[in-house]
Structure formats: structure tokens, C-alpha cells
């Protein structure tokens, strides 16, 4: 279900913990699995974690599937719902909001023609509202695909960023 490269990455995470505590690597393993799906998936349904993937990861680690499912559903950065090629998570917490975070979200929303929590019909963008990312000094901020933090997201910066992603 996962590629050899992903499995090698998971093995590397597992090796960080005592031999009988592979369970400790469940967060990393799920992250690696999700990342692989994000990169290889062609439609939104293929870019998120499914119960099959979670079960595979759990069995690979030798833990009960439901234990991995608990973790996957607890943290919101594990995508459990179909997600576009670019997942944009805009911070709307207070410091960002004071510096136009909500406007940023609304701007992207208008520009992409989708509301918060929605995906564009072509499956390219998903817009989400996020909680504080710990970079209030750079507000307004957004997070692209869980990994890349974009700072000072003024409308111009957004236009530029979206153009890069086209």
C-alpha cells in the first residue's frame, strides 16, 4: 500500500524507540503515509488518509488499528477528508485576525470561489481555517500543505503565491 521509500522512512522512525514500542512511532508513520498520498494522489480522495491506509500503518507497526485511528482523528493535520493538491490553512486566531487574517481568508475564498473547508471543483485547492501557528509576528500567516509556512500574506503576496501554485 505504501512505497518502499515510505516504509524505509517509517522504519527509521521506528528505530528511534525501543524494539517493543513501535507504537511510539505511530504519529510519524501516519505523517509519512499521508505525505506519500498527498504527493502521489491524483484526485482529492486519494490525498487523504483512509481507513485502509490507517489499518495498513497499524498492522505495519503491530498495533491495533483502532489505536492508530484514534491518533489520526485526534490531530487535525492528518487529513481524514478529501483534500486538494494544495491545502491552504489560514490562521484566524486573534493576533492574525488583528492584522487582517480574516481578510486574508476571505480574499482567498473569493479568489478561489470556495468557502472555508471546501475544495475547488478541479481538486486543486482546499481552504481551511487554522489555529495559531506560533508565528504571530509574521501575521497574517497561512500554512501550505502542512509543511510550508507563508508569512505576511497580504493580497499581493497571496496573488503571487497562488500564481506560483498554478
Amino acid at each position: 500500500m505504501l512505497t518502499a521509500e515510505s516504509l524505509a522512512l517509517i522504519d527509521r522512525e521506528v528505530a528511534k524507540y525501543p524494539a517493543d514500542q513501535a507504537r511510539s512511532a505511530v504519529m510519524s508513520a501516519l505523517r509519512i503515509a499521508l505525505e506519500e498520498r498527498r504527493q502521489t494522489g491524483t484526485v482529492p480522495e486519494e490525498r487523504c488518509l483512509t481507513t485502509e491506509v490507517i489499518e495498513f500503518v497499524a498492522n505495519y507497526l503491530g498495533i491495533p488499528p483502532v489505536a492508530a485511528y484514534e491518533v489520526a482523528t485526534f490531530y487535525n493535520m492528518y487529513d481524514m477528508k478529501p483534500v486538494g493538491k494544495y491545502k491552504i490553512t489560514v490562521c484566524t486566531n486573534l493576533p492574525c485576525a488583528l492584522r487582517g487574517g480574516v481578510d486574508t481568508a476571505n480574499y482567498i475564498s473569493r479568489k478561489l470561489g470556495i468557502g472555508l473547508g471546501e475544495t475547488t471543483p478541479d481538486g486543486k485547492f482546499t481552504l481551511l481555517e487554522g489555529e495559531c501557528m506560533g508565528a504571530c509576528g509574521d501575521a497574517p500567516v497561512l500554512l501550505l500543505n502542512n509543511h510550508s509556512m507563508c508569512s505576511f500574506m497580504t493580497p499581493e503576496a497571496i496573488d503571487k503565491k497562488l500564481a506560483e501554485l498554478e
Partner: peptide, 27 residues
Amino acid sequence: TEEIGGFQEIGMANRGEFSEILPFLGK
């Protein structure tokens, strides 16, 4: 299920107000 049964068949999914107790989907 985890401690006496030996295999965790039931779990608590989601978080906060959305928490729910469930067996692994389809099981």
C-alpha cells in the same frame, strides 16, 4: 479491551466535543 482483552478493539476517535467511542471502522 486493551488491558484485559489483550487487544484494543474499541477506541476513542476525534477530539473534545467530537470524541466518540467506536470499534475500528467496519469491524
